[in-house]
Design a protein around this nucleic acid. Structure first.
Ligand SMILES: [Mn+2]
Ligand SMILES: [Mn+2]
Ligand SMILES: [Zn+2]
Ligand SMILES: [Zn+2]
Lengths: 136, 136
DNA sequence: TCTAGAACCTGGACTTTGTCTAATTTCGCG
DNA sequence: CGCGAAATTAGACAAAGTCCAGGTTCTAGA
């Protein structure tokens, strides 16, 4: 499900985020495409026509979205983090050469045999990453 | 199984790596502890008594070890990569607060329902990361 | 033993990704 | 409108990592 720009204020408010111009643009970059984007890519997308959003605001806003649970982060590349507008439980397939990242539905996948968590710790999440490269 | 310093030249040669003084020290830092270390931590360990190995050499050597299959890298933290002397198939449990990383044997774990790989790609590896934090 | 090339190591400049801060702009509201 | 709070900004700063030109060490052959 993709979103239009008009959906953004409501989406932001539903996550307790004050919808400002910059926040709407950043949310729209992510939710109109429903793709995994790095901070750099978000920065480029919101500034295509004329520069209107600073680097500091891009990072502040992405971290705010993260903290409010509007997006999640995906750590697969040693050089940059990807921001993911899909917050439903899912896993990732990562092409280590092209850097292309795609979703794998969690519904179909079963993981068994996990050890019990260490005493005094709570589960934060389980990340499953399938790394592939061009066959040769 | 831990290693002594005397094992290092043979270990390096068995992976087609010329054993130099710096390479032996770096391998020893990893294989004597059998722990996940960042480049920074390796750097500190090989230079405890007097500075003898440069930053460039630490990074060059870790990447050489990686390429030769002597160690593997673990990408769980957005800020640094961890180098892992354990190359047997295994997964990881990561405490997002303390940054502590522990191994989870792959033997016991079964993952089912993975989709077929995209045409023309080969599996590079499957990383499973269990993220935990202090309960509260 | 001497020597030349290859391999290796080094300091430091540079790059990338991201954070911080102090000053300014915009927003929400009475 | 006019005030205080919230948000944004430019640019300095920081951490992780790469690159390069020059220097050192190793090795094989004469
Ligand atoms: Mn950027
Ligand atoms: Mn990095
Ligand atoms: Zn995703
Ligand atoms: Zn490990």
């Amino acid at each position: 499900m993709h979103y239009s720009r008009d959906n953004m204020p409501g989406l932001l408010r539903s996550h307790d985020i004050n919808p400002t111009h910059q926040r709407i643009e950043i949310a729209y970059a992510l939710f109109s495409r429903m793709e995994h984007l790095s901070a750099d890519q978000v920065m480029a997308l919101v500034n295509v026509y004329h520069s209107e959003t600073s680097k500091a605001t891009v990072y502040n806003t992405l971290n705010l979205f993260l903290q409010k649970g509007l997006i999640r982060e995906v750590i697969v590349d040693p050089n940059k983090v990807f921001y993911d507008p899909n917050t439903r439980p899912h896993h990732h397939l990562y092409d280590v050469e092209s850097g292309h990242l795609t979703d794998v539905d969690a519904q179909d996948i079963h993981i068994s045999g996990l050890p019990p968590l260490p005493k005094g710790t709570a589960l934060e999440g389980i990340d499953l990453i399938v790394r592939v490269r061009k066959a040769g």
